[in-house]
């Protein structure tokens, strides 16, 4: 099956390329990058040395293919989706342009109306654990925000079963530097970024819309209060979520709900361990894997439940999830090409 990538020089595009190169069902088509057209892909992605002699091409030379991964900066794929749909049967857009279903949300959250609201109906929010069936027939499969994915997967069972108070959800994500992408900036300059514990968005909003959209059950939409802190990581997110239970549930009950929802999911692991060093979800050992680990702890003296969720923002938070959604859409084994378990120690 021929798969191409538009925007292959960034981190998400590069990670998609690495995964697709190792995918048994995929023949790699083209990888586009306007700024690097004509260059070897391994000149930008050194881990691909001796593995491929593929060169970047311009998007103008895009040839038809079965699946097209799109990893473009914000706002680009909105305008060019018709062009992509004319070239590929399915488009997996890792960007944010088609994530929200309601056209009215775009001016509200992203400050500008959607360029192609007519196409929004064809887009499915591409997290298989949430929309497996819809993905199978979708022509546009959207990526999900990496912080949003972590939060949604952490809290889904609680809101699906109506166990948590939707008016009081506080989430703080601790994030690595690769989340800001491959473009260097003053704040990503090593002497400034190294060893940072930086409250770069104490009242973050960007991902809230997706989280509220995907955690709406029975007409109830939770209000989520976000915060983001940069920590000493390149890959990885740890979301620490504070929710307040309606009933005085014991940890056994919480285990039951999470096991019921996630027990059979190949990429979701409940991590709450009485022994060992890694007792709750921890991002560094997930680097390169497609896992999202979820754990929780009841606050004895109150109705608070702290839920912790971790993943690799470039894998389950972007490219890995894209390949997983491709597997679902094309009827492959869902874990195909995504078997890497992550490294320990790392």
């Amino acid at each position: 099956m021929k798969v191409s990538i538009v925007g292959g020089s960034g981190y998400a595009g590069g990670e998609s390329l690495r995964l697709l190169l190792g995918h048994p069902k995929v023949t790699l088509g083209q990888v586009t990058s306007e700024s690097n057209a004509g260059k070897y892909v391994h000149s930008v992605h050194p881990n691909l040395r001796k593995r491929t002699d593929l060169k970047f091409v311009s998007a103008l030379d895009l040839e038809p293919c079965e699946v097209l991964f799109v990893a473009l900066p914000h706002g680009s794929s909105m305008k060019r989706m018709p062009e992509f749909l004319s070239v590929a049967e399915r488009v997996i857009d890792l960007g944010a342009d088609f994530r929200l279903r309601d056209p009215a949300d775009y001016p509200k959250w992203y400050g500008a109306p959607h360029a192609r609201p007519d196409l929004l109906g064809q887009a499915v929010y591409g997290i298989p654990e949430l929309h497996r069936e819809a993905i199978k027939s979708a022509r546009i499969i959207t990526g999900a925000g990496c912080n949003a994915t972590t939060t949604i997967l952490g809290l889904l069972p609680l809101f699906k079963h109506g166990l948590a108070d939707p008016s009081r959800v506080v989430v703080e994500v601790k994030v690595g530097s690769s989340e800001a992408g491959a473009k260097a900036s003053d704040s990503s300059h090593h002497p400034e970024r190294s060893h940072a514990v930086r409250s770069f968005q104490p009242t973050m909003h960007r991902h809230t819309a997706e989280v509220m959209q995907e955690l709406t059950f029975g007409g109830q939409t939770p209000k989520v209060y976000f915060s983001a802190t940069a920590v000493e990581l390149v890959r990885g997110i740890l979301a620490t979520c504070h929710v307040f239970l309606k009933d005085n549930l014991a940890e056994k009950d919480i285990w039951r709900v999470y096991r019921q929802e996630y027990g059979q999911e190949p990429f979701l692991r409940i991590v709450k361990d009485r022994t060992g060093i890694y007792r709750y979800p921890e991002p560094k050992i997930l680097a390169g894997s497609n896992f999202c680990d979820v754990g929780f702890e009841r606050d004895e003296g109150s109705d608070r439940l702290v839920v912790m969720a971790a993943l690799d923002n470039l894998m389950k938070g972007a490219a890995g999830n894209g390949v997983q959604a491709m597997n679902v859409a094309c009827g492959f084994e869902e874990t195909l090409g995504l078997e890497f378990l992550g490294l320990h120690p790392i």
């Binding site: 285990w255 709450k272 361990d273 009485r274």
Partner: peptide, 9 residues
């Protein structure tokens, strides 16, 4: 014995 999920002895 050790529980496979929560690791308690």
């Amino acid at each position: 014995v050790q529980c496979p999920d929560c690791g308690v002895e």
